[in-house]
Design a protein around this nucleic acid. Sequence first.
DNA 1: TTGAAAGCGCTAACAA
DNA 2: TTGTTAGCGCTTTCAA
Lengths: 349, 349
Amino acid sequence: MADTKDPTIASRRQGRPATAYDVARLAGVSQSAVSRTFTVGASVSEGTRFKVLEAAQQLKYRPSHMASSLKTRRSYIVGLAVTHLDNQFYPPIIEKLSEALRQAGYRILLFVTHGDTNFDPALDELLRYRVDALILASTSLSSPLAQECREAGVPVVMVNNIDPESAIASVAGDNRKGGESIAAFLHAGGHERYGFISGVESSSTSSEREAGFNSFFNDHGLPQPVRAVSNYRPESGMAAARNLLSSKTPPDALFCVNDQMAMAAMEVARHEFGLRIGQDISIVGFDDTGLSAWPSFSLTTYSQPAVQLAASTMALLGRVMEQADTPIEHIIVPGQLIVRTSARIPEGY
Amino acid sequence: MADTKDPTIASRRQGRPATAYDVARLAGVSQSAVSRTFTVGASVSEGTRFKVLEAAQQLKYRPSHMASSLKTRRSYIVGLAVTHLDNQFYPPIIEKLSEALRQAGYRILLFVTHGDTNFDPALDELLRYRVDALILASTSLSSPLAQECREAGVPVVMVNNIDPESAIASVAGDNRKGGESIAAFLHAGGHERYGFISGVESSSTSSEREAGFNSFFNDHGLPQPVRAVSNYRPESGMAAARNLLSSKTPPDALFCVNDQMAMAAMEVARHEFGLRIGQDISIVGFDDTGLSAWPSFSLTTYSQPAVQLAASTMALLGRVMEQADTPIEHIIVPGQLIVRTSARIPEGY
DNA sequence: TTGAAAGCGCTAACAA
DNA sequence: TTGTTAGCGCTTTCAA
């Protein structure tokens, strides 16, 4: 620190980070000894290790990840593609995935594919980085691309999206059962006219929830709910709600594909149509994101527990990475109906 | 496609991605010709280029980023560290940064440092990956660490955080002026008792906003506002609001360090204390995040425009990366008071 | 315009 | 336990 003419400076080329070779020279050992010191489980004597660490510290040496992964053919990087970062549902999951991946020794290469942007170029990039795996955390990431990755030998797991057609492993909440439970709940509440606000219709998340919802009415010989389509953006959810509520016979029970859409619908119902939520109209969401518990929304919803979702994703990822020929799994993480006051509460709930 | 015994298979080692050498063999050219074909601006004849691209496509070849950056010493990776992913303020910025970085040819290595976790190990990782730059997007990422990165020769830019002490370039909203404007606005509204809910007190964001807020009262010989501390988490904001509102002489004008805290405070004021927002109590936030425009909140706030914030960050990053000895800049992106109904609106606003 | 050859910084045999 | 050596897959001189 006090040294101005530090000999360590001379021993490495100006401006560049120190290399294992620089460290070896300063420590008076071979370069492989340096490598071994930084490889867990490698055999180095205490003496050597000490000298190396000493020198490494002086030179602020850190093994270059680029170089090591060139040799080991493992990047320890996982690609993470997300679209709807603004949906409160994703941040907690990303946070948990990030932590779990970090603990497993992996880093995240992030791809935010805003809206309708083509994911193709991003995918190409991912492959260039030789990512060890790919996590697709979005309802609207098309799976042909994922498929291509898989064919390139990159393990892929989809989160909150499921495509039985493609051979992509996936983790999702219980969309079907959730939709059914909500239908049963609303029906038990004695509503008259049922409505559904979808998300992007090609997303399994939306179609599964809707299918579950509709199946209940089907099974009970009731008329199908009316529906309006959103693209998962708040404004679009509001528009869908306006659409439905402007009808001559507007629904008095509204299931929205996720909490975000449900809250958007609540805004419209409350402030544009003057409806009292939970009384004049029942609104139910899906996800149980943070905001839904706030008194202003007090949203009845079906939970998709972020912790379990992330944990299952990690477990599945581990299996997929272990052996490429693992049978394709589609994991469903159970959730439950979270009853709050945004929808009429029937007896027994 | 129809070929089963594709000769291309034989020309590359099983299971591994094709290398430039594989492509060269198949195309009947030298390996450097392959490299040149994939290097913009390199000189290759049309004929060679064609043969190479042909072969590359057959082998699904993509240049390994690991290998090239080993040689070029540029990773084209930018580290992005975020803490409060749940704060609606960050996602739009991350989205914009991500897009801008992508266009500039950079990828993002994401580090989510949940809450109080030590950022040190993550930093170490970043350096191992030889990231070309580092973006710290969080109010509570300590700057000694950033400093260390900078010393390691990695350009660092902080977003929504500023530390004049450390020599770290930064981009932030106009916290000071925002705080002042809000004070002036509330004072013009003829309030009696002023309160402030802070964030993590060590964050410049919080202290600057509070300083601006307080300075107004100071300058006008008015008593200092009462204050309560939050840690930027909603529950903590709610607790702070409870604290303030339980006083015998509760504030009738409350400035919260950001929109998230303001909304949390609104929930408490409205649902626990039965106050009518904008009438019994005025609440003002900071950021102008998406939710604040929703009728249920209709939050008066001071904007921090994500687009400009991201653009300035990119511009600054460019300058910092260009030459390490650039004078340290602290960029302040102007915002403006967004008047809604959560606070009494004085004449002239 | 092309190919040969020398590395980039590391890991992993292989010998010693 | 150590050092020597040969690459990993690329870029980049340098000659041809």
